[in-house]
């Protein structure tokens, strides 16, 4: 589908989701600054267009796999932010009852098969979900999120090759935010576009502006449609940029100021907002209304998480086996 044909409601919904991720992550950052978040955090701020552009093409029963930087994927797939927030704070009411935390959120009821914090480890799992779809003869698809760093893991090669030769319904979404932790792409890869690697597996590969939600949507829509019809996998590289450091301890000093400024100017949330206003899809006060509602939702999630109890210590012994 060409994005020009998208109904107004869909565009507004995408904006709402992107804003929800943005404000949620800023809230998490605030909480971390107040020492309320145990462990570490990997914020999705700046990459919202990727999760939302991809997940907006999916059905509820489609699957996604996620990464250590996964809050945005959860929210875009439709997770309940109360339970996401509770999990991040280590509460019993969190999605994983406090056993996973920020890096391991899952909601199997909406096809969110979980975030793995081993870089690249989710890629074969996504292919396995794709094989399961094939064997169960449904028409679900799987969107597999991973970063530029993960594309250098053996799992990337092993898994995409398998998905390609078996023509499985998997959309490989590489979020290229240009840095694997602190390592610039050019230090570890001799190519500029990771999508070039698709040719090696005999599947389509495209690079899109990952800060343009409509570009991500359009590319994914085509890939999903092909996958559902048995046309096999696609590799979509979304060039994007994280607004903050890799994790909570990282001030990201390795990134040139001009580069940061240039990417901030291409803020995906702001860009969609401008597009909606310029094309007269919505009035400004409607967007303000949305922002108010989203902020209230986040405050409510925070309240829920803060008021939720911690798990009883001995619950550490549960759920090891079925």
């Amino acid at each position: 589908m060409h994005t020009a044909d998208l109904p107004k409601e869909k565009l507004v919904e995408m904006y709402r989701l992107m804003l929800k991720i943005r404000l949620f992550e800023e809230k998490v950052f605030e909480l971390y600054a107040q020492n309320l978040v145990p462990g570490t955090i990997h914020l999705y701020t700046g990459q919202e267009a990727v999760a939302v552009g991809v997940c907006s093409t999916l059905r509820k029963d489609d699957y996604i796999t996620s990464t250590h930087r996964g809050h945005g994927h959860c929210i875009a797939k439709g997770a309940d932010i109360k339970r996401v927030m509770a999990e991040i704070l280590g509460k019993k009411t969190g999605y994983c009852k406090g056993k996973g935390g920020s890096m391991h959120i899952a909601d199997f009821s909406i096809g969110m098969l979980g975030a793995t914090a081993v870089v690249g480890a989710g890629i074969p799992i996504a292919v396995g979900a794709g094989l399961s779809v094939r064997l169960r003869k449904t028409d679900q698809v799987v969107a597999c999120f991973f970063g530029d760093g993960a594309s250098n893991q053996g799992t990337f090669h092993e898994s995409i090759n398998m998905a390609a030769v078996w023509r499985l319904p998997v959309i490989f979404v590489c979020e290229n935010n240009l840095y694997a932790m602190g390592t610039r792409q050019s230090v570890v890869m001799a190519i500029e576009n990771i999508s070039d690697r698709a040719a090696a597996y005999g599947i389509p590969g495209v690079t899109v502006d990952g800060n343009d939600v409509l570009a991500v949507y359009e590319a994914t829509f085509a890939a999903v449609e092909r996958a559902r019809k048995g046309g096999g996998p696609t590799l979509i590289e979304c060039k994007t940029y994280r607004h903050r450091g890799h994790s909570r301890v990282d001030p990201a000093k390795y990134r040139p100021k001009e580069e940061v400024a240039a990417w901030l100017a291409r803020d995906p949330v702001k860009r969609l907002k401008e597009k909606l206003l310029q094309s007269n899809v919505v009035a400004e006060n409607m967007l303000e209304q949305i922002e108010k509602m989203v902020s209230a939702e986040i405050e409510e999630a925070l309240k829920y998480a803060l008021e939720s109890p911690y798990p009883a210590p001995e619950e550490a012994l549960e759920d090891v086996y079925v």
Partner: peptide
């Protein structure tokens, strides 16, 4: 990994 993905989705 493929076995894991298939197992968590019903196989």
């Amino acid at each position: 990994g493929v076995a894991v993905g298939a197992a968590i989705t019903g196989m």
